[in-house]
Amino acid sequence: MKPARFAYHDPDHLAEALALLARLENARVLAGGQSLMPMLAMRVAMPDHLIDLNRIPGLDGIVVAEGSLRIGAMARQRRIEDSPAIRAACPLMTEALGLVGHIQTRNRGTIGGSLCHLDPSAELVTVAAALDATIEVASATGTRDIGIADFPLGLMTPSLAAEEMVVGLRIPLWPAGHGACFTEFARRHGDYAIVSAAALLLPDAQGRIARVSLTLGGVSAGPLRLAAAEAMLLGEAPSPALFRAAASCCAGIDAMEDPQAPAWYRRRLATVLVRRALEQAWARTEGVAA
C-alpha cells in the first residue's frame, strides 16, 4: 500500500498554489491528508502532482465577529473543536467535531479537507448545510462564493473546477438563546455516521419556534435539508407530538443504500434522530420559560 509516483509541490504563498493548480494537469491539493493519504496509499487516487497547502500561512484563521464566523480552509479540526469562541457562538460545530474521527485525525484533518472530500456521512458537511454556510473558492483568476446547497455536485464530488480550491467558509451565526443539537448513529465511536441529524431552534418571546434548521447527513450524496419539516415547525409551540410529526417527514425521503445499511433502515434512523435532535435542541434553548 504505497502511493504511486507524484511530483510534490509545497508552495508558501496562496498565489503560487493557485498558479500551480491552474498550470498542472492531474493535480490534487493536499490539506490535512486524513482522507487523501489513504486514497493515495490504496492507489485509488493517482495524481501526477500533489500541491501541499500546509506551508501557506494565513489559510487557517478562525474569526468570530459581527454575527458571522469565518474559518479558513486549513484550520485543523482539533483547533476548531477547542476554540472557546466557537463553542460559545456555534455550539453545533463543537458538538459535531467531537464525533469526527479521533484525536489523531482531528489534529491533522482540516475543515476544508473534510468539505472537499464530501463524504455523505461527514459531520462537518452536515453542519455546514445546517448553518447555511458559504464556501469561499479561489483560483488563479479570482474568487467566488458557493452556497453550501450548491456545493455537492454528486457523490463525493464538490462543484469545483480543476483549477479551484476551497479557501474558507463563512457561517452566519444564530442569535444567542438558540438551541442546537448534532446527533448521529455510528457503529463505533469516531466512525462515519450511518445517519446524522443537526437541529437548530430559536424560540420567540412566546415560546414558539421563530426559526428552525433541520439537516440530515448520510442519507444522500449531499446533506439533506428537511424543508417540509422545517415548515411544519415554524411558528408552532413545541411539543413531543409536534417533533414526532416533523420527524415523520423522514419516512418519505429517498435514502441511499450501501452494504452497511439499506434505505429503509436509513429512513427509520433519520426519523428517530431528527426527533431526538429536535428534543435536545429545544431543551438547550434559553430565554424561554419551560
Binding site: 489513504p38 457503529r187 463505533r188 469516531g190 452494504p259
Partner: peptide
C-alpha cells in the same frame, strides 16, 4: 455485534478496510 467479512454474490470482498471491518475499540 461488529465483525462482518462481507462478500457480494460474485464473491467479491466488500469489507476490505479496517473502516469497513469493525474491530472493537475501547469505547465498545
Amino acid at each position: 455485534l461488529y465483525e462482518h467479512m462481507r462478500f457480494d454474490e460474485q464473491a467479491q470482498p466488500i469489507s476490505t478496510t479496517l473502516a469497513d471491518y469493525l474491530l472493537v475499540t475501547a469505547t465498545e
